[in-house]
């Protein structure tokens, strides 16, 4: 039996008439990366801030390693075992990398500053002012401030929002390393690819509720739909041949043709069939992913900026 690191039970958070979190329940197990995936305003940050003891739930309960986030006596113990990277975090501009991490270390009474800086590749630039760093370096400083003190559970709230693709991939690398080190990571994001690449389990959150939750593979298998072959162009006769053999064929925007197949082996059968009949066929094969899960469950796509489209 795997230990529970976090347990949220029917969490509700209301601001006046607005319900930001509406009966959210989930569990996160020790050593896994768990993502809350959803658009802006879905209630992801409010949910994790309840878990971080930064917000009081209107109702419901949450436990961090069995300690209640509502119990004042437990809160101090919880704060000793968690590390937090807040959303859109920026450290103190006029302090160096080292001094910023020292600030977090002093607050946590931690002394593993050098280890963390080396682990995140910041040791060489430790004496550089935060204001002089690149976007990716700044985010790494934030992660370092969250990681100092070796927290058992790390909350990373939108850790790559606003970063360029290179810095984003670089940050993913550090989060993967974090998982390897055995820490439990709770991630909020609106990037499908990020959740898919980094998470063991994902909860899709919309309008304060969890719409679907599970292992990425399981979610894709159950909600992601079929493997698709996408043709930029396909002759109408070829479409007829495929339909004649029982394949599901759709014409989509831009004149492209999509063929949905049940098994990966069907991909080769489709291509072989078309070539046998004398049609040129060079399809792009698309495996279903979280994006398809999201589309299937929510009925909308998520834009790069985190809006539902």
């Amino acid at each position: 039996m795997v230990d529970e690191a976090v347990a949220a039970e029917e969490l509700v958070k209301k601001y006046g008439d607005v319900t930001a979190v509406d009966g959210v329940s989930f569990k996160v197990y020790v050593g896994e990366v768990f993502s809350l995936l959803g658009p802006n305003g879905a209630g992801k940050t409010t949910t994790v801030e309840i878990l971080e003891c930064l917000r009081t739930p209107t109702s419901g309960e949450a436990y961090i390693k069995g300690l209640s986030v509502k119990n004042l006596g437990d809160i101090r113990k919880i704060k000793q075992i968690i590390g937090v990277l807040p959303q859109e975090f920026n450290a103190v501009d006029n302090l160096t990398v080292l001094e910023n991490v020292q600030l977090a270390a002093v607050a946590k009474q931690a002394d593993n500053i050098r280890d963390v800086l080396e682990q995140l590749g910041l040791w060489q630039i430790r004496n550089k002012l935060f204001s002089k760093l690149s976007g990716g370096q700044k985010r790494r400083v934030g992660i370092a401030m969250a990681l100092v003190g070796n927290p058992e559970i790390v909350f990373l709230d939108e850790p790559t929002t606003g970063l360029d693709p290179e810095a984003r991939r670089e940050t993913w690398l550090y989060i993967k390393n974090l998982r390897k080190s055995g820490a439990t990571v709770i991630l909020t994001t609106h990037y499908m690819e990020e959740a898919e690449r980094l998470s063991d389990r994902v909860a899709v959150m919309v309008k304060g509720r969890i719409a679907v939750e599970g292992r990425v593979r399981e979610l894709v298998a159950s909600h992601g739909g079929k493997t698709r072959l996408v043709f930029d162009f396909l002759d109408e006769d070829a479409v007829g041949v495929l339909r004649g053999y029982g394949y599901v064929v759709e014409r989509v925007q831009g004149g492209r043709v999509v063929v949905k197949v049940d098994r990966e082996s069907d991909v080769f059968d489709v291509v072989a069939l078309l070539r046998d009949r004398g049609f040129e066929a060079y399809p792009e094969v698309r495996q279903p992913g979280l994006e398809d899960v999201f589309l299937s469950v929510i009925g909308s796509r998520l834009s790069e900026t985190g809006e539902l489209v």
């Binding site: 971080e52 600030l103 969250a146």
Partner: peptide
């Protein structure tokens, strides 16, 4: 500024 940058949240989530 500390609040806007999230530093207050980060510090508040520590035992300090």
């Amino acid at each position: 500024e500390m609040r806007r940058k999230g530093v207050m949240k980060l510090i508040a989530a520590t035992p300090l």
